[in-house]
Amino acid sequence: MIVGLLWLLGCQLVGEVVVRLLDVPVPGPVIGLVLLWAVLTWRRTPDDAPVVRTGDALLKHLQLLFVPAGVGVIAFGSTLRDDAVPLSLALVGSWVAALAVVGWSVALLLRRARSGGEG
């Protein structure tokens, strides 16, 4: 478990330092994700490796980690009430629109690539 934690923290640490040095508008953990992915691929890491077990244990409770930020709704009670109509319309409308655009466009391009490859 300690070895697994070291990998996760180490990749995040490198990611955080890199985004600050290069001044790119990307969160450090996302660079850390790419880095760990490269390491796992490079080393052909098997499923019983410490980093895999530690990471899976953490991901099992990914939703828990958003609770502290989510409780922030109480700090904006009055704004959320006063602007309930524009906010909920934007939230739901934009969510459905983008969900459909990503889903349909990727599915369409996949179908075209497949039929193109066969033909």
Partner: peptide
């Protein structure tokens, strides 16, 4: 929010760990 920083902190390492299902 300050009291629960200990929980929120793990969002960073958990994001890194998303490399595992991808692998």
């Amino acid at each position: 929010r300050a009291d629960t920083e200990l929980i929120a902190f793990w969002l960073g390492p958990a994001t890194v760990a998303l490399a595992i299902p991808l692998h």
